[in-house]
Design a protein around this nucleic acid. Structure first.
Length: 297
DNA sequence: GGTAGACCTGGACGC
DNA sequence: GCGTCCAGGTCTACC
């Protein structure tokens, strides 16, 4: 079955798909380099896995599932896609703010500002933990292993699985996650998170709509084992709070080249460089035009 | 509150 | 092919 969802304009699906590396992580699958369509394998409440195919449509996106769905299941998938692509996000204040900044003036024209996210915060936290202290190739390998070893298989395609819910990961053990899934020292962090959510001690989904002030919400993220300043800031951006910068080695490098002549700098200098953008600094950093660095300038 | 060392893996490098 | 070194954030112990 196939249906459409509307998005608050301006909206351009490839801009969201290409907003960061999440599209390269299972169970996402990008159909082309441009990001005009992607698929995602989602486990329904019944335990059955289905593949969603998302493409651009006039005024929003089209969602296609090659399986029969109940009304409730279709509604749940619609909520997933709306969250993953932030279809209702209002960026008019951000666009107004950055209109005169040459390094950000492109964002409105290209309908940038939405950051692709997973359907659940649990999945995004696990993935974020798996980005820390490793190269991107390691992140892709670890996420792929988590999905293939624990995720519900997609009927008819043994090679694809959904991202496992916390209940599935909670039944694993540190030894397995460490040595078979090869998460290394991150294994106890992922296991503790899964068990806390599965056991009802932690309601991550409530954070999506939390009224907590951003610094308080950040403290909640930092309280999770394996989540430090970088990971917390990354998660805050995914939660639509842009007050903090995810300062990693890449941020130190590009900010140094942009404003400090390539000299070694710390997180303080990165923060200072974007302080001007206030509550939007996370997005300003995310969508800053660093292309000249990639081109070798 | 700040800092040093450990954690784990894969890739680069030298032999 | 093998061994060594290093990069990548966070945690814990210590000052």
């Amino acid at each position: 079955m196939k249906w459409t969802l509307s998005a608050r304009p301006p909206f351009f699906l490839p801009a969201a798909v290409r907003s960061h590396g999440w599209i390269q992580l299972a169970p996402f699958h990008r159909e082309d380099e441009e990001g005009t369509a992607f698929t995602y394998v989602r486990e329904l409440d019944s335990g059955r896995a289905v593949e969603m195919r998302v493409t651009g449509a006039p005024g929003g996106v089209s969602v296609e599932v090659d399986a029969a769905l109940t009304q409730d299941e279709q509604a749940a998938l619609s909520r997933d896609v709306a969250w993953m692509l932030a279809l209702d996000l209002d960026l008019s204040e951000f666009y107004e703010l950055v209109r005169d900044e040459p390094k950000l003036a492109h964002v409105e024209r290209r309908a940038q500002g939405r950051v692709l996210r997973s359907p659940t915060l649990f999945e995004d936290i696990v993935k974020t933990i798996l980005t820390t202290n490793t190269a991107w190739g390691g992140t892709k390998r670890m996420v792929s292993a988590v999905v293939s070893q624990f995720g519900a298989p997609l009927p008819g395609d043994a090679g694809r699985h959904a991202f496992p819910g916390p209940e599935r990961l909670a039944t694993s053990d540190e030894e397995t996650l460490r040595n078979e899934t090869r998460l290394g020292y991150r294994a106890p962090y992922v296991l503790a998170l899964a068990r806390a959510v599965a056991g009802g001690e932690l309601d991550l989904e409530a954070y999506k709509t939390s009224d907590l002030p951003t610094p308080e919400l950040r403290k909640e993220m930092l309280a999770l084992k394996g989540v430090g300043p970088y990971a917390a800031a990354n998660l805050m951006v995914l939660l639509g709070r842009y007050d903090f910068l995810p300062v990693d080695s890449w941020a130190l490098k590009v900010v140094s080249h942009e404003w400090h002549g390539g000299q070694p700098i710390g997180a303080t200098e990165v923060e200072a460089a974007f302080e001007h953008w206030g509550a939007w600094k996370g997005l300003a950093y995310w969508f800053w035009d660093w292309s000249y660095l990639a081109e070798g300038g």
